[in-house]
Design a protein around this nucleic acid. Sequence first.
DNA 1: CATGAATGAGGATTCATTCAT
DNA 2: TATGAATGAATCCTCATTCAT
Lengths: 194, 194, 194, 194
Amino acid sequence: MAKLQKSIDKRNALIKATIELVNNNGFHATPMSKIAKMANVSPATIYLYFENKQDLVNKTYIEVKAEYTKYAFATYKDSMSVEDGFKLIWQRIADFKLKECENAMFLAQCDNTPMIDEESRQEGIKHLQPLLDLWERGKQEGIIKPLSDYLLYAYAINPLSFLMIIQKRGVFQLDKTHLEEAYQAAWNSIKVSL
Amino acid sequence: MAKLQKSIDKRNALIKATIELVNNNGFHATPMSKIAKMANVSPATIYLYFENKQDLVNKTYIEVKAEYTKYAFATYKDSMSVEDGFKLIWQRIADFKLKECENAMFLAQCDNTPMIDEESRQEGIKHLQPLLDLWERGKQEGIIKPLSDYLLYAYAINPLSFLMIIQKRGVFQLDKTHLEEAYQAAWNSIKVSL
Amino acid sequence: MAKLQKSIDKRNALIKATIELVNNNGFHATPMSKIAKMANVSPATIYLYFENKQDLVNKTYIEVKAEYTKYAFATYKDSMSVEDGFKLIWQRIADFKLKECENAMFLAQCDNTPMIDEESRQEGIKHLQPLLDLWERGKQEGIIKPLSDYLLYAYAINPLSFLMIIQKRGVFQLDKTHLEEAYQAAWNSIKVSL
Amino acid sequence: MAKLQKSIDKRNALIKATIELVNNNGFHATPMSKIAKMANVSPATIYLYFENKQDLVNKTYIEVKAEYTKYAFATYKDSMSVEDGFKLIWQRIADFKLKECENAMFLAQCDNTPMIDEESRQEGIKHLQPLLDLWERGKQEGIIKPLSDYLLYAYAINPLSFLMIIQKRGVFQLDKTHLEEAYQAAWNSIKVSL
DNA sequence: CATGAATGAGGATTCATTCAT
DNA sequence: TATGAATGAATCCTCATTCAT
């Protein structure tokens, strides 16, 4: 295997280990030594790829966030109608949160905790632009309520995080029917009522 | 001042310091020594009131959660109509989350993080019963969608947590109009459409 | 009950608790608070009876040592023959070590550990004088070997401590036969062979 | 110097420091920080070699005990007569206890104190087997009294511990004559009298 | 005499980070 | 690049002792 590939593999292993351990224990209860062990490298090696622990978790956040939004918009096209486009994106997001549970959990913890630098947080938000553009279009077409994007996000997207968390905790199991109901609730909350 | 009152004051000061410091730094980045300093007691004194750090944060969680639900249901009566009752409770919750910001932030961090014992988490959930009863009534009367309570909570209540967090971060300021809009979104997401 | 008696009772309870806890955990692993709890007094009360922890354990040592030697020589009289006197004292000592096991264990730990002040150690030794006098008489009568008292003690008395300890640990149970054998071994080691 | 050797040296320095400090202060009055300082390492380094303080002292005990018995039986051979064999072993043990005073003191404190795990205690006892075998042979040949091994040990070997301790305390100095006398006492206590 | 709340000093242990190899 | 041994700086928690009552 090429040297470069080996480097990338190690870096990925570190990112993966960070996600899993932080999910289960939290940022500060996750020692660098455990991350190293789980990634099968020496603790010192981490510092070849990341400046320090904070940098490791910041970078992990940004990468996962990018992966998340990339997945969300992968099949979306500007040419779609507002309703179709929203439904598509919503379903992709739901898909990601429920199938890439570890990644989604990690994002949720980062977003509700002072563990991430403000700068990295801003970096992570950028990628949502296509959704905001869609909403803008929807508002202009009179299909979506003329609300602040934050409100739209709070009702259309954020509930999925909550559902994902309680599903992970095992108290609730989301099935297809639930997902359809959830979509209806999301759409009803932001669409313009007749 | 009576001895008992002094004890209660100290305990409250510890709870308050815990909330503030955990909000700003996270559980594991909050040393007992800082909590003690902020509460104006010796570190050893904490252990007269709580078994250990985990116990301190568990108990803090339960107390804040109890305060939260007590506030939420303070003016609610079973005799109210489903819609009036829901609106009342929703507004009280919004009120709490926005005015008692520190407390609400603390709950959000506990709920999205592995920092609380599962047992304490369960203990904290109990108090929501009146809301669940109201929903049950609403479903029977055909006013509220026959969805799982988790779904109803995800769309009707949880978005407020998201709004509270971003408001706390200073990127968004909720005003009266926003609140009315948020309520409409919440209600639209769970009410039975005509 | 008289006030004085209550004081004596408390002091005795403290001594007793000290012995039991030190036996099971060692001096430094025995907190004053546990001693207080076992004696049913407040930690602060200990300091009404003893200057500090070291004083408590020193005084305990001296009292137990006094009790031990008092018991050992209780029925001994100068008028007895050397052999009869020795056998009597030996048996009383054996009796004490095996029946007052807690007390004897405590002395053994004090004697093999740097937990006691040298001064208190000296104080405790004094009381053995009658045995040393007996041995002196035995040497003059040509019945007991003209050895240093330390050697005599090492072979005639000290083995009982060892037997007591292993009996306490449960690996060995001393019965009447063993005791008779032990006495013969002790006597054979110090008596003048024909 | 080779890396491995440096590791071994550090470990040995830790063991040595543990022995010296525990001898002078007792287990619980010996802080890990002092052990580290005396061994010229950082406190954290101890935990590279031992799991925790209890493990450190357990392992130290087992190593010293092994050294002790190795020394005791180094020149002994099964082919020796019972009396010669016993005298040889006895003298080697006496030699060890008086010359390797620190080590012997440490063993005495471990054996008379609840500071060692029962498991480690058992581990330490195993090595005495050759002496027990010798005694068994002596009993069969009618040379040694048919007593429990515990009794034989109490009278033939254990007194040396007592003599070592008081010599260490400076109240008594064992010379060659004393040693010869002690051996006679030991042998007289366990040999079959004619 | 008696108490129990309070504490400062200290101890075991962990961990992010470095450095010689 | 990669390592693992090493560590200083925390951090949680305990405990002998005091003091107001």
